[in-house]
Design a binder for these strands. Sequence first.
DNA 1: ACTATCATGTAACCCGTTACATGATTTA
DNA 2: TAAATCATGTAACGGGTTACATGATAGT
Lengths: 203, 203
Amino acid sequence: MSSTTSTTSTTSTLGFAILALLARADSTGYEIASRMRNPVAYFWTASHSQIHTDLQRLLSAQMVAYDRAPGPGPQDKKVYTITAKGRDALREWITTPPRPQPERDELVLKSYAAWLADPAALMEMFRTALHRHEERLAEYERAWASLEEGAPPLFGTPKFGNMAALRCGLGYERHRVEWCRWMLDQLSRSLNPSCEAAKPNDE
Amino acid sequence: MSSTTSTTSTTSTLGFAILALLARADSTGYEIASRMRNPVAYFWTASHSQIHTDLQRLLSAQMVAYDRAPGPGPQDKKVYTITAKGRDALREWITTPPRPQPERDELVLKSYAAWLADPAALMEMFRTALHRHEERLAEYERAWASLEEGAPPLFGTPKFGNMAALRCGLGYERHRVEWCRWMLDQLSRSLNPSCEAAKPNDE
DNA sequence: ACTATCATGTAACCCGTTACATGATTTA
DNA sequence: TAAATCATGTAACGGGTTACATGATAGT
């Protein structure tokens, strides 16, 4: 019999993001949402509404299960667990190559059109962007330092995943900081094109 | 009178991407789609169907206009132009700070869950990712070189935008290449944890 | 008294992808 | 003769955001 439940359940990427979190620790839907807003898991966020609906889909695909527990509100809270089936699906998904996702970056788009706009206003925009990236970078650096304190991360432990994702975040923010600084430099030159040689080193 | 057409037209980001392209050269919808698939404008893509519908919206908001010209197919082709109103809206949009967009990156998500999966399969995945990024990087480097050949880019000319976007692309691909190499190194260590110091350079 | 945190859910809407539909010209 | 390129459009569907709706407890 093909009762191995060929559920046609084309679990969305968010579904796997949820499974990846549940594989580390059982959580309520609410907790999953908040964990996604925390340092390491920045790279896949979702609103609580979407998480709840997705959990229901995962539930009907038998990839998660839950235990009821008395909740603060009118309804019980549901503490979700990943099932064996869910873990298998997740494990399989991890190593299937993601197809190249179209990159959409509003700031880069704006930079592409920057030649039409006011340089001073542009500089302010890039200054705020720079600050955001510097803050993120500092945050990641703190997280990295605290990771390196403990034992070296073994493959097979969640810590390996933390370092992998963090390492990417660090590189990304460094690249962004660098680019914003370069943009500011270019823009400031366009404002006062007087001293062009008196620039010690740009990159 | 408020007949300055307060069209409530909250032109989408794609709308501005289209305007940014039209500000450089008049195009048909088809051409806009193909221009988005070209080196410099990779950072904002869209399918032709979406572009056509968006052009209709921009048209009703009087941000673009078009001239009919005999087309190859059954219908005339429409060569779109940006209007003064469109250019004003674009110019204003460029300097309004984009609100931080949630970063969603499937490969990073997979790396976060990598501790659960098979190292060898992971290595293959990261190897193909590495190749893709190396190719992109080479492409960007060629484009950069050809940009540097001509006259230095003046603010106020499209070339400034090309360099700004390209510079970002270069930094991004370099960061990605670096991260993929680091991942491969980590994974290979987990496969044979014997010689940890004797690793000169893979690739 | 008000706000924040914890906790669950539904409904409307927007943006984007994929598939459907048509058809001339050029190239392999 | 088959395909790729040029060229325009519609329709269905999926994923994501925002807003709506409820309500207890803890802190300011």
